[in-house]
Design a protein around this nucleic acid. Structure first.
Length: 573
RNA sequence: GCUCUCAUAGCUCAGUUGGAUAGAGCGUUGCUUUCCUAAAGCAAAGGUCACAAGUUCGAAUCUUGUUGAGAGCACCA
């Protein structure tokens, strides 16, 4: 809000001086070095080239002719190669407090931008419980959704349910095997069967509902699949709920099959002349593939069929979509699903998934473009892998061996907020090591407590003293450098939300919280003997309480935008 | 072999999209509490931003190459 004001002033000034010039987007920044004023601007350096003048000269002109009717800028200095260091008047900084208090929980929330966005995330196969591997994309998708909403988007959160295909059939057979076992039959699990304990629980449920009716029947599979999917989805939903993650829609893959969306896509491609019959995809011939590549490994299973001309749209080779026997491959259902998403009228589609599926990105883009759809609407948030460490050793998970840590248990053991913060602290783009021992320690080594303690400390102060409201007279008492810094920081909050949403990077908000709290803690401790918040000076006390209240509001808004709870009170030893 | 991502303090990571003297947390060392919560604060130590060229007023950030790590490269889902 202050930034926008400064932008306006500088743009007006430049226009008044050089009307013929198209003013580039002015960049005003919070400098790290306090000697560089409250805000720093590099516009003079950017204008040096188009104006053909030295940056310092331009800066001088600008500072001497500032169009600043409300005298927001108290002083402007020229420094270094041509930076303008702006110092703001106390009064203009102090205005943030009433602004924040007026807006309350809405401070930092932006007006609706009439953009509809769909965020698809988790979308785990309904063949088992969620495990630790799902955690990062789940929390990221959730936080990104919250961020986009705060930034003014109308957000729909969607879970794509893979309830069709081989995997759920395997699930059905696994359930049936355990079901038979419950009636005393000796069974041998198939090689690809799911070995987990939870399958037995599902079998028990089936037995309780249907008795022994399926023992002698051949058509057991649909029923076993149905109950398997339903039970797993229920478990997934509960786990997500305990993680504070809700979805608006659960989109069934089977429903696409049911309404013939698959054959429709193929017809669409056919109409567009995008298909051809061949032994081999165009593109593979030119590509040197060594024995290590997977396609070479499986070459003997490749028989030819119907191919889609994705190589014309940026994919490295054409993709098969119908096997030689005419059955569609998995990709087609995924294409149909994305086509559906486009048809539902969103302005922006975001897919969140693990970086192990990064190969999916150019392929899906190409498939959409081959349908004549604008793939710029499609965004992929790739979440890098997490390496789990226990006792300094990497833990390897495999679903087949049943060696997994269930997300549900993990959240129960560690606490939602801790897990959430650990996963949101890092940008999605970097892989990181998750130290399990550290997460389990409920000590100050854990960054969550720092955040929450800051909020609780503010809450304590406010309950201790009666806050009677602010007016600009009183607020003029806030003149300590630390107080000015916190005012600036709070004023920057709406910008942080916007840029974090724009770049799909929730961790920025978390680092912002960390900074804001650090400033408050330092302020609090430094002045605990001299300039206490609650003092005999009633006016000063009210002004500082107003500051704390605004801080608390900003912090609580930021934390809730990430789904992290902000307690009023914290118990500890 | 090819493609993508990454490489910043002892460890885990930020770095406002090209800006001024590269930051935080943890760990290490020393200090601060009669008090509104010490789950806090202050100070110190710790860096060839993997390496080498290039682009320009200016590079951790952009380009190319090299090295190293992770992921992907079947008509599996």
């Amino acid at each position: 809000m202050i930034k926008r004001l400064l932008n306006q002033i500088l743009t007006d000034t430049v226009l008044s001086l050089w009307p013929e010039i198209t003013v580039p987007s002015v960049s005003v920044e919070l400098p790290k070095n306090p000697d560089h004023g409250d805000y720093a601007c590099n516009i003079a350096m950017i204008l040096a080239k188009p104006l053909g003048l030295p940056p310092r000269e331009i800066a001088l002109k600008i500072t001497q002719n500032l169009k600043d009717p409300e005298s927001v800028i108290a002083s402007a200095e020229i420094a270094g190669p041509g930076f303008m260091n702006l110092k703001l008047s106390n009064a203009s900084l102090q205005k943030v407090i009433p602004e924040i208090l007026k807006q309350g929980v809405n401070y930092g929330r932006h007006a609706k931008n009439n953009q509809k966005v769909l965020v698809e995330f988790v979308s785990a196969n309904p063949t088992g419980p969620l495990h630790l591997g799902h955690a990062r994309p789940a929390f990221l998708g959730d936080a990104v959704s919250r961020l986009l909403k705060a930034a003014g988007y109308e957000v729909t959160r969607e879970f794509y349910v893979n309830d069709a295909g081989n995997q759920v059939q395997t699930l059905g057979r696994s359930v049936y095997a355990r079901y038979c076992e419950l009636f005393g039959q000796k069974i041998e699990l198939a090689k690809d069967a799911y070995p987990g304990e939870y399958i037995i629980e599902i079998a028990k449920k089936l037995k309780a509902l249907d008795g022994d009716k399926w023992l002698t029947r051949e058509d057991y599979l649909p029923r076993c699949m149905e109950i398997g999917i339903a039970e797993n989805l229920r478990d997934v939903r509960e786990t997500l709920q305990s993680a504070g993650i809700e979805f608006d829609t659960w989109y069934s893959e089977q429903s696409l099959h049911d309404k013939n969306a698959i054959s429709k896509v193929i017809q669409d491609y056919l109409d567009r002349g995008m298909l051809y019959e061949a032994q081999q995809a165009i593109g593979t011939i030119n590509k040197v593939r060594r024995d290590e590549s997977k396609s070479a490994q499986y070459a003997h299973q490749q028989e030819g069929g119907t191919f889609l001309k994705t190589s014309q749209f940026g994919d490295e080779e054409d993709r098969i979509i119908l096997r030689k026997n005419g059955t569609p491959v998995y990709l087609v259902a995924d294409i149909a699903y994305h086509q559906e998403k486009f048809a539902r009228g969103f302005d922006r589609l975001i897919d969140v998934f693990g970086a192990d599926h990064s190969g999916h990105v150019p392929r899906m883009r190409a498939c959409m473009r081959a349908l004549g759809l604008d793939d710029k609407k499609l965004d992929f948030l790739l979440v890098q892998m997490v390496r789990m460490l226990k006792d300094g050793q990497e833990m390897r998970f495999s679903k087949r061996s049943g060696q997994i840590i269930e997300l549900r248990e993990f959240i129960e053991d560690v606490g939602v907020d801790v897990v959430r913060v650990v996963f949101l602290m890092r940008s999605a783009n970097t892989q990181f090591d998750f130290d399990l021992d550290l997460a389990l320690k409920k000590s100050s080594e854990n960054p969550v407590f720092y955040l929450q303690y800051g909020h609780a400390r503010m809450a304590t102060i406010l309950t201790k003293a009666q806050f009677e409201g602010v007016d600009s007279q009183i607020l003029s008492r806030l003149t300590l450098p630390e107080e000015r810094n916190m005012l600036k920081k709070m004023a920057a909050y709406p910008e942080i939300i916007l840029s974090a949403a724009k770049s799909l990077e929730p961790h920025r908000v978390l680092f912002y919280c960390q900074d804001l709290i650090a400033e408050f803690h330092a302020y609090f401790t430094q002045y605990r003997h001299t300039e206490r918040i609650i003092s005999d000076d009633l006016e000063l006390t009210q002004a500082r309480l107003g500051l704390v209240m605004a801080l608390k509001q900003t912090l609580s808004n930021a934390l809730s935008t990430l789904g992290i709870s902000a307690p009023e009170h914290m118990e500890h030893d």
